[in-house]
Design a protein around this nucleic acid. Sequence first.
DNA 1: AAAAATATGTTATTTTAGTAACATAATAAT
DNA 2: ATTATTATGTTACTAAAATAACATATTTTT
Lengths: 202, 202
Amino acid sequence: MGADDKVYRLLNYKNLLNRLKSIGFVKVFSDNLADTLDISPSLVRKDFREFGIRGAQKGGYTIEAVLIKINEVLGIDKKHKIIIVGAGRIGQALMHFPGFRKEGIIVSAGFDTDPEKIDGQTDIPIFHIKELTDYIKKNNIKLAILTVPENAAMGCLDMMEVGGVKGILNFTSMNLKSLKVAINNVNIGNEIENLIFTITKK
Amino acid sequence: MGADDKVYRLLNYKNLLNRLKSIGFVKVFSDNLADTLDISPSLVRKDFREFGIRGAQKGGYTIEAVLIKINEVLGIDKKHKIIIVGAGRIGQALMHFPGFRKEGIIVSAGFDTDPEKIDGQTDIPIFHIKELTDYIKKNNIKLAILTVPENAAMGCLDMMEVGGVKGILNFTSMNLKSLKVAINNVNIGNEIENLIFTITKK
DNA sequence: AAAAATATGTTATTTTAGTAACATAATAAT
DNA sequence: ATTATTATGTTACTAAAATAACATATTTTT
Ligand SMILES: NC(=O)c1ccc[n+]([C@@H]2O[C@H](COP(=O)([O-])OP(=O)(O)OC[C@H]3O[C@@H](n4cnc5c(N)ncnc54)[C@H](O)[C@@H]3O)[C@@H](O)[C@H]2O)c1
Ligand SMILES: NC(=O)c1ccc[n+]([C@@H]2O[C@H](COP(=O)([O-])OP(=O)(O)OC[C@H]3O[C@@H](n4cnc5c(N)ncnc54)[C@H](O)[C@@H]3O)[C@@H](O)[C@H]2O)c1
């Protein structure tokens, strides 16, 4: 998890700083961030230094400046199009999740095999899966969410690789691997089982 | 993430072994597991030893025996009831997710404020949120999935604490903390942003 | 203006996680 | 039967991540 851990930590900083900002805070100290995130203040400072975020020797860090820098480092200062492959229950839940838009993530289309689900007229159009590769190429799509049944996962991965997708958030329990595409697995069953372990063994 | 990492690794072993078993495999070597999970064989052996899983000096590990032991260690050899607080888009997607049942996770009820959603007659009943604490106590519920809007998250957490819930899988972007309850956050926005970082910076 | 206080920036230390190495035991080959 | 092979079990080592410590710069106080 090495380098990834640091990214998640930056995202935690970002989310917390956004919250503090919305309350009206302007500056923040490494101690504040460390306390709420359960890490040491020196780690906060080390992280910030690594990304060229500098504070004042006494006055702490300016929230706005840190946020700008973190967004720049994470690459989320720009808009990013994403497609959803499999417009079933979670697929559609994600499709209309308002939380994405305010982070600059734009769901541009969905794909499915079921003719009942296909509809090019809706705000977010749902196309037939056979148009997937073409759509990716034509619209220069780099990101996808995969929410098809497990047995369809590999086939969809192939099509996305051909189209030129670079990152996939995989919700199927199929543990996909690829040399061409970065795959991030979200396994909700695992999360619950991890919780079961915690409450029974700790 | 210390001890947690090991649990996720055990879950990876479990999922992979189940898959191998379904293909007809009976035995497996630490090298096989290591290769597909991108870890070293010695780590596999170390993990297994730590949990009292023993193999044969030459013949590797018996899949069935390892699975039984892992399930025992994880506490998922028993059935676990879980409730879903917030029967909206993701709440309902999760409610009817067939993947849970085969892992022994039983969704026993949902809760919501919207009168339109409340219905005690469906296979999985949806009750009004005011019945939450009572329901948890009467049915000895220890696990919950939280899928309410962000601004309702804290209030629901309080009720669940009072009821006696011990573990919560939190889908809201509110970063909840509690001394009484183990909380596992699933932040889908973060997962996508992590992916954006990966494809732009690596 | 000088002294005290305080939070950063940075280095040193500790802790933890993961890998490599190898001796041991079991199996297979001759 | 004896030898060679092979994969485990375990210890030693390496790498990396996080913390602790402290010197430095800035601000506040007197
Ligand atoms: N629902 C959940 O809460 C949940 C939770 C965790 C994981 N998952 C996983 O997410 C995936 C989807 O789950 P769901 O509950 O939304 O299922 P679903 O059946 O509601 O949706 C799957 C959709 O994929 C479509 N589809 C089937 N084959 C396809 C193909 N080859 N190409 C494109 N589309 C295709 C179907 O028509 C359907 O609309 C599954 O792999 C499931 O294991 C679901
Ligand atoms: N939809 C997604 O794909 C998605 C993805 C990531 C995170 N989330 C998060 O999950 C949560 C739910 O998202 P959603 O898309 O399902 O929203 P939604 O609006 O569809 O569902 C929320 C449900 O909670 C109910 N509710 C409101 N106040 C309540 C209360 N006090 N007690 C009980 N129920 C209450 C509403 O009636 C509604 O049915 C949000 O916090 C959202 O940020 C959603």
